[in-house]
């Protein structure tokens, strides 16, 4: 189907492992197993996966977040329906009739309630229902539900990892398993090289709920420089203009006051020199990613951001181009090689 089979296999495996903010265990296990190929993997006190390899004067931290947006069970009603709230920035417009998995004592299938057009007024369909009006139907009575579901259980949105045309794929949780895949792919690209620098990897928890994982993990790593790999907005109908990236147009190199300008420039130079597809992403303040936490951790860390263009962010049909993950991995690998070479 496409020429990015390694990246596709990585992304598929990572997306299959679930992990809503604060309950990333399954995703952490999958990511740790993949990281073990390159360095010993550990789980830190908040649940982030971390690892360190190489020696050198410069210490570079690579970060991508492990958690995905989802829902959290707040109550079980008298008929066994689950009342829920957001865990991370779930989009209420895509909830009606969504298929979900409740991560209870076992994985429980569910459907988010909706009202058919036969029973609603035409104008009702202009507004999404709020959390007070919806619930998750797990086909159980209250007594049955209470045996398998507890308050606080996380809920993920179901959806297959599906191949679209060319090298584009759709899946839930590409935000930010694409970033995790990019870092693992980067490690593969540099695994046989003698690096002149120390590399730390962090697959951080709780980005979607504020970045606690990155804040703690970056402090523990105490690196000199950091590169975060996250997703950002790709152009799509209703999302147009210079501001948004082209899907398949290459890795997005972040420029922002909070990002280290020299690192950003260096990444752009390397991309040009090595013919790695890239596009700039310019922000006027902070970035809304883990970079914001990493930058100010400990004594401060020079931080750069590489983003993978994504459509339909925070839905079960997030769409990315595998080519953009590959270019993110390649640019990261070239940057590390160059920084290490200088120090060697």
């Amino acid at each position: 189907m496409n020429n990015f089979s390694e990246v596709s296999a990585l992304l598929k495996e990572l997306c299959a492992a679930k992990g809503v903010s604060g309950a990333e265990n399954e995703a952490a296990k999958a990511a740790a197993k993949l990281l073990e190929k390159y360095m010993p993997a550990k789980i830190d006190p908040l649940g982030s996966v971390t690892g360190t390899a190489g020696e050198g004067e410069t210490h570079i931290l690579l970060d991508a977040h492990l958690d995905q947006i989802g829902l959290i069970v707040t109550a079980i009603d008298e008929d066994g329906f689950l009342k829920v709230a957001k865990c991370g920035g779930a989009d209420i417009r895509v909830l009606a009739a969504a298929e979900v998995t409740v991560h209870g004592k076992e994985n429980v299938f569910g459907v988010i309630t909706s009202t058919p057009p036969h029973l609603s007024k035409p104008e009702d369909s202009n507004k999404a229902k709020g959390f007070d009006e919806i619930a998750v139907d797990i086909g159980m009575t209250k007594e049955e539900a209470e045996k398998v579901v507890s308050l606080g259980d996380r809920i993920t949105f179901n959806g297959a990892y599906s191949e679209l045309l060319g090298s584009r794929v759709a899946s839930p949780s590409i935000d930010d398993r694409a970033g995790v895949a990019a870092i693992l792919r980067c490690l593969e690209l540099i695994k046989d090289k003698k690096l002149g620098c120390k590399i730390s990897v962090m697959f951080s928890v709780q980005e979607e709920t504020g970045g606690s994982g990155a804040q703690a993990g970056a402090f523990a790593a105490a690196a000199d420089e950091a590169i975060a790999a996250d997703v950002s907005f790709a152009s799509a109908p209703g999302v147009s203009g210079e501001k948004y990236a082209k899907l398949g147009g290459g890795t997005m190199i972040g420029y922002a006051p909070s990002l280290d300008y020299e690192m950003s420039r260096k990444l752009s130079e390397i991309a040009e020199k090595k013919n790695i597809p890239s596009q700039p992403e310019v922000m006027g303040g902070k970035t809304g990613t883990n970079c914001d936490e990493i930058q100010v951790s400990g004594r401060g860390v020079k931080t750069a951001l590489l983003s993978i263009p994504l459509r339909n962010m925070h839905t079960a049909v997030e769409v990315c181009d595998l080519e953009d993950i590959e270019s993110t991995a390649r640019l990261m690998a070239e940057y590390i090689t160059e920084r290490g070479g200088k120090n060697a």
């Binding site: 920035g89 989009d91 209420i92 417009r93 895509v94 009606a96 009739a97 969504a98 909706s114 369909s125 999404a128 229902k129 959806g159 297959a160 599906s162 191949e163 679209l164 045309l165 759709a170 907005f233 799509a236 109908p237 209703g238 999302v239 459509r311 339909n312 962010m313 925070h314 839905t315 079960a316 049909v317 769409v319």
Partner: peptide, 24 residues
């Protein structure tokens, strides 16, 4: 409301597609 963010199949070749939505 039940169409946004859904996976679909299209045409005789049953190609995969998605009903997209502007990120929230």
């Amino acid at each position: 409301r039940v169409m946004l963010g859904r996976a679909v199949r299209v045409g005789d070749k049953a190609v995969n597609g998605v009903i997209g939505i502007k990120p929230v």
